[in-house]
Design a protein around this nucleic acid. Structure first.
Lengths: 341, 341
DNA sequence: CTGAAAGCGCTAACAT
DNA sequence: ATGTTAGCGCTTTCAG
């Protein structure tokens, strides 16, 4: 049923070692063209498929990469996965995808199981700003690339959105619409995406000359709708005039914010404009449709996988450079002119 | 750095074979309790992790299952994946997920690569009613389970929604709202989900005594929004009174239908009610929110994985039974009373 | 250019 | 109860 290299070699009348060389593109040149042809023919005729476990045992490679994501149900990640697989597949690599649910303990456990499987490398969409798994990977010198999230000190190559610029563009957009009281619903501060956007927000608010007191920030407990609702409730409970625009740290928070506004009898965008981040699927269909930054998710996966592939196939570790991807602002219904009263 | 079984055995002063038996729960009873304890202690102290490639080469297992999905970006699938992994992980199995894009050629290629990796079994969310990969799997006697889609002749165990009942409930719901002209936007007929729902639709229309002429059907080219738009355009172009309700074969088609209605100057639900299938994420947030059937996606994954796990760990192939999962109708804004004029 | 031989790390039959 | 041995299927030195 399943033919082995030895079967092929025997049928071709050569030694298994020779057959191996003939079959392997890199070593093919060591074998007579004639012999290569014969072996190749017989191999295809016998439908020979190398046993990748045997090969991996010998070569100390598994032709497998571990891909850790927080949660595949978050629509941000599947497009990244597709981008990664578009590169990995043709390179003969398969991804082992695991979901960490942003739980550091679970993350470390899953990392261990992936290490047992001798993954040739890792792609991490799960990095905390201070991430034990990343440190462990670096210590063990395993090839790995970060996507979407950075660590505080840049230990590994990474591909992320250009968040500082996005925050700037978001605030410019709102200011142009007449907004002067802009609040920020920040993401968790142990994630770079939460931290960097908050920092950029404060900087830009100062840079464009808005009053800090008019531009409050609140840190949410997670990147989900209910955290967004909680955050907007807090914001609305503050004394003084309420903000006329909210920059949420991602789309799920933005949706939660809009829910919260509705619950408080406010309308988006009439009373308060809302901006999100990432442009996950369906944001053009929710009500109101959401103004947000279109993270090039597929490309992000492609570029990260490309860096990893080169690292695995080459020998030298690359510089831990950060690739910043530009994300166009997609203006939809959720942002409008500041209320005039 | 990475310690092997031989290292552990040496440190424990026993033979590798003995260490193997001590470490393996099934063979542990062959070793003196004393020795087991010592080996275990040393193994944990040395942070020993068995090389699964070596083990797999020996045992002819990869502790890996191939999971073929049409497209992870379709929000129907990630929750199923999570359900599958919830069972597989604790059983020491990892899933290799591939996206086929409903392309039979790609499907067969990817299947080949997964076979090379010596997957212990397969979960297929990709089955066509007549599916060469399924036939190949059966021929090779590889453990495998279908999810969400069936093949025409039931060759493998499967876990699916109870579609016939759902169609019945959908039409009951619409009839109760006063609808008498109900159309069906069917899915592709080479998929069980398209075929079964269409057949059930026709049967139920007759059973409840609606006029066939008033209840037209149109088969769409794919399970996506633009196919839904095309389908509704065709339906509206027909002569005679237009339907007052549409049963779409899934949520994406339903959304496309609603888009098409909008484009034609019609309002959902005022002029035409729409029902979808599956209740993918965000259907409670699109406009109008969609009435649909809540497929228990996570549970579907769990049950399929459970069947597969038992098959892989046991020895006998199970009966190719179908597990039908009940899907509650979630009534939202997209269905309302039939227009009275 | 091809053959021979060793060995990756593990398990399982067999021997002690 | 433990040790011995062989071998899963492949790649890769090293000889010839």
């Amino acid at each position: 049923m399943v033919s082995t290299l030895a079967d092929v070699a025997e049928a071709a009348g050569v030694h298994p070692g020779t057959a191996s060389k003939a079959l392997n593109p890199e070593s093919r040149h060591l074998v007579a063209a004639e012999t290569v042809k014969r072996v190749l023919e017989i191999a295809t005729k016998m439908n020979y498929q190398p046993n990748s476990l045997a090969r991996g045992l010998r070569t100390k490679r598994s032709y497998t990469v571990g891909f850790m994501v927080p949660d595949l149900i978050n629509p941000l990640f599947p497009p990244i996965v597709r981008g990664v697989e578009a590169v990995l597949g043709p390179a003969g690599l398969s991804a082992l995808i695991v979901n960490t649910d942003n739980d550091p303990k679970r993350e470390m456990q899953l990392f261990d199981t992936l290490v047992n499987r001798r993954c040739d490398g890792f792609i991490l969409a799960t990095a905390f700003r201070n991430d034990p798994v990343v440190k462990e990977i670096v210590k063990r010198k395993i090839p790995a690339v970060l996507v979407n999230r950075l660590t505080e000190t840049q230990l590994l190559p990474a591909v992320v959105g250009d968040e500082a610029i996005e925050v700037r563009e978001a605030i410019d957009h709102l200011v142009k619409l007449g907004h002067r009281r802009i609040a920020h619903v920040a993401g968790p501060q142990n994630l770079s995406t939460g931290y960097i956007r908050l920092r950029a927000f404060k900087e830009v608010i100062n840079a464009v000359g808005l009053a800090e007191a008019d531009c409050p920030t609140v840190v949410s407990t997670g990147y989900n709708e209910s955290a967004g609702m909680d955050a907007i409730a807090k914001l609305l409970a503050r004394p003084g005039p309420r903000p006329t625009a909210i920059l949420a740290a991602n789309d799920q928070l933005a949706i939660g914010v809009i829910d919260g506004l509705k619950a408080a009898g406010l309308d988006c965008p009439r009373d308060i404009s809302v901006i999100g981040f990432n442009d996950i699927p369906m944001m053009d269909r929710v009500h109101p449709t959401l103004t947000t930054f279109a993270l090039p998710k597929h490309q992000m996966g492609v570029e990260a996988a490309e860096i990893l592939r080169a690292w695995i196939e080459g020998d030298a570790a690359p510089e831990p450079k950060i690739v910043y991807l530009r994300c166009p602002l997609v203006i939809r219904e959720s942002t409008g002119p500041a209320p005039t009263n």
